[in-house]
C-alpha cells in the first residue's frame, strides 16, 4: 500500500515535470477585507488565466481548476447530546485541533470528472477529503469519513456558511481565462486567508499557485476591539459609566414630577 502510494507520487512528479510550461496568473479583487460597522459580508472575485508558452503541449481535456480558500486555524470542540435520566445532556465530545475556521472549495466541475479517486484523496480535494485532525487520547488523527462527529462538524460549519463546497464555482470564460467568487459571510473570523489554485489537465495536477488576503477590523470596530483586548479593566469601567450615564439620562428625560 505504502509502496503503491510512493509510486503514485513519483509518477505524479514525473508527470508534472514537463508541464511546468503552464503557469497560473491570478488576482483577487481585494487583498484586504475591511470590517467596519456596516459590514454584512461580501463576495470577493478572483480572476485568473492559464499562461502558455511555445513549449506547451496541446491538452486534449482542456483545463480544470480547483480553488481552496483556507481561513485562520482554530481548535473546535464538537459535542453530542444524549438522553440521560430523561433529559438531554452533552455526553460525548471530540476536539478538532487546528482546523480551518473557514474553508471554501470551488472547482470548474465535479472532481471525478477530471481526476481519478486516488488523486482526489492524495491532494485532499473537497471538504470530504480535507484533513480534520481530532484529538484521540494523546494522538492526533483524522477518522473515517463516516465518523458522526466529523460529519456533524462539516454540517454545522456549512449551515453557518463557513464551509462551502461548490463544484461549479469556477467558471472558464475562455479555455484559459477563469473566474471564481469567494463568499465572505458576515460572521467571518478576522485573520489571514490563503488561496490555493490547482490546475488540472489530462487527469494530472499540472500547475499550482497561491495567493492570500486578510480580513481586518477598521476604524471604530478596530478601536473597540483592541481596547477590549488590551485595556479590559478600563473598557469595563467605561462601559459601566456609559450604562450609568444612559440610565441617568433616561430618568432625567422622562422625569414628570
Amino acid at each position: 500500500m505504502k509502496f503503491a502510494r510512493c509510486l503514485a507520487m513519483i509518477a505524479a512528479c514525473v508527470a508534472s515535470a514537463p508541464a511546468a510550461a503552464e503557469r497560473i496568473v491570478s488576482s483577487v479583487s481585494t487583498h484586504q477585507v475591511m470590517i467596519s460597522s456596516n459590514f454584512t459580508g461580501l463576495d470577493l472575485v478572483l480572476f485568473g488565466t492559464v499562461e502558455r508558452d511555445a513549449a506547451t503541449v496541446l491538452r486534449k481535456s482542456g483545463y480544470d481548476l480547483v480553488m481552496t480558500v483556507t481561513g485562520p486555524k482554530v481548535s473546535t470542540v464538537t459535542r453530542r447530546k444524549e438522553r440521560t435520566f430523561g433529559i438531554w445532556v452533552n455526553v460525548e465530545s471530540r476536539a478538532f485541533i487546528d482546523v480551518p475556521s473557514y474553508l471554501v472549495v470551488m472547482s470548474s466541475r465535479p472532481f471525478d470528472g477530471f481526476v481519478n479517486a486516488d488523486t482526489i484523496r492524495r491532494l485532499q480535494l473537497g471538504l470530504n477529503r480535507t484533513l480534520l485532525p481530532q484529538q484521540i487520547g494523546s494522538d492526533l488523527a483524522d477518522t473515517v469519513r463516516e465518523d458522526p462527529f466529523r460529519g456533524a462538524f462539516l454540517r454545522l460549519k456549512a449551515v453557518r456558511h463557513l464551509y462551502v463546497e461548490n463544484t461549479a464555482g469556477v467558471t472558464f470564460l475562455t479555455p484559459t481565462l477563469f473566474r471564481a467568487t469567494i463568499p465572505i459571510p458576515a460572521e467571518v473570523p478576522v485573520g489571514n486567508y490563503d488561496i490555493n489554485l490547482k490546475l488540472f489537465a489530462d487527469g494530472q495536477n499540472i500547475a499550482q499557485a497561491t495567493s492570500a488576503f486578510e480580513i481586518v477590523k477598521v476604524g471604530f470596530e478596530q478601536f473597540v476591539f483592541s481596547q477590549a483586548q488590551t485595556n479590559g479593566f478600563f473598557y469595563g469601567l467605561a462601559t459601566v459609566m456609559l450604562a450609568l450615564l444612559t440610565g441617568w439620562f433616561a430618568s432625567v428625560v422622562f422625569r414628570r414630577d
Partner: peptide
C-alpha cells in the same frame, strides 16, 4: 456593574456597541 468590569477585565467579552443599543432601549422601556 461589578460583573461587567470583571467580565471585561478577565474574558474581554463585553460588547460595548451591543450594550449601548440594549441600554438605550432598556432605560426607556424601564
Amino acid at each position: 456593574a461589578m460583573a461587567t468590569i470583571m467580565h471585561a477585565a478577565t474574558n474581554h467579552l463585553v460588547d460595548a456597541v451591543l450594550a449601548l443599543i440594549l441600554m438605550v432601549g432598556g432605560v426607556i422601556g424601564a
